[in-house]
């Protein structure tokens, strides 16, 4: 039976058209700026405007030259990797703990673990700077990793908790009834089934560290300058197409990470819907 076609007056038509027009503008607004800027990284000249003065790879060569970006990229990757390990391990354990059983103060602990997401990052950075200074953790790799981990833990807790929500606990009980000790049941049942959530938490943790400017502004000495930290200086200094080349490189990494997350989500949904 076909549903009756409702009456559409002029108000409906104008309203519907307006909604679609604004939405279309919104989607263009989201993507166009990034797409419009990208070709400038191939500019033969040193201006950041069209028309391009020939095509060249020189700005990419500048980005991948020995200095100054490569040491910064190395810092970003190592600090990001350390943050990822620390945040994923502590955050995943915490998410398991939160979903394991009921206990007093559970909501408060959950809120505490999420709170670094809502506290303005300048405040966290300043607080950590002042607290770490007496211990020599300012201008150090360790200090930066600890601060980034605090910012990254909420993301891991949220993604892993979400995975555990859809997790069928009878499977752990089934494993136990078949004689598996708790740790074996965890390693062979819980862990594989929640792995996609843990991995996407890890990706979020890495991105949190990799994108951070503010904490690096407070805690990183020149030895620990990350890519965003150096980029912040460059944007304040002078603009040349090498910034855009670097941006294109970072966007490529972002697309790769987004694709990873999508793949993990697809896998998690498949694992869950398996009969």
């Amino acid at each position: 039976m076909a549903s009756p076609r409702p009456y559409r007056g002029p108000a409906d038509r104008i309203g519907g058209g307006l909604v679609r027009a604004v939405a279309a503008l919104g989607f263009v607004f989201m993507l166009a700026p990034i797409l419009a800027v990208m070709p400038l990284s191939f500019n033969g000249g040193s201006y950041l405007s069209y028309p391009l003065q020939g095509v060249s790879w020189q700005w990419y060569a500048a980005v991948f030259a020995a200095r100054p970006w490569m040491p910064a990229l190395w810092n970003s990757v190592t600090i990001g990797a350390a943050t990822t390990v620390l945040a994923t391990v502590t955050g995943t354990l915490a998410a398991y703990g939160l979903s394991y059983t009921e206990f007093p103060g559970k909501r408060a602990i959950g809120a505490l673990l999420i709170s670094p997401m809502v506290v303005p990052i300048v405040i966290t950075a300043l607080a950590v700077y002042l607290a770490f200074a007496p211990f020599g953790l300012v201008n150090s790799f360790t200090g930066l990793v600890l601060a980034h981990t605090v910012l990254a833990v909420p993301f891991v807790v949220i993604t892993v908790t979400a995975t555990l929500h859809g997790f069928d606990r009878t499977m752990v009980r089934a494993a136990a009834s078949l004689g598996a000790p708790p740790l074996v049941a965890f390693a062979t049942v819980t862990l594989p089934l929640t792995a996609p959530g843990i991995l996407s938490g890890a990706v979020f943790a890495f991105v949190t560290s990799f994108d951070d400017v503010v904490v690096a502004l407070f805690l990183a000495g020149p030895e620990q300058f990350t890519v965003p930290r150096r980029m912040f200086n460059a944007l304040r200094d002078k603009l040349d197409p090498s910034i855009v080349a670097l941006a294109v490189f970072l966007v490529t990494i972002s697309i790769f990470l987004l694709a990873t997350i999508e793949l993990l989500r697809w896998r998690s949904e498949r694992l869950r819907s398996r009969p």
Binding site: A94, F103, T124, A131, V157
Partner: peptide, 24 residues
């Protein structure tokens, strides 16, 4: 067990977030 699982994250939060913000 639940508290033991939460302990590392809570310790980290306490040392590198709660205490610094309180001191600030």
């Amino acid at each position: 067990t639940a508290f033991a699982l939460l302990a590392p994250a809570l310790l980290l939060m306490l040392l590198a977030f709660v205490w610094p913000i309180g001191a600030l």
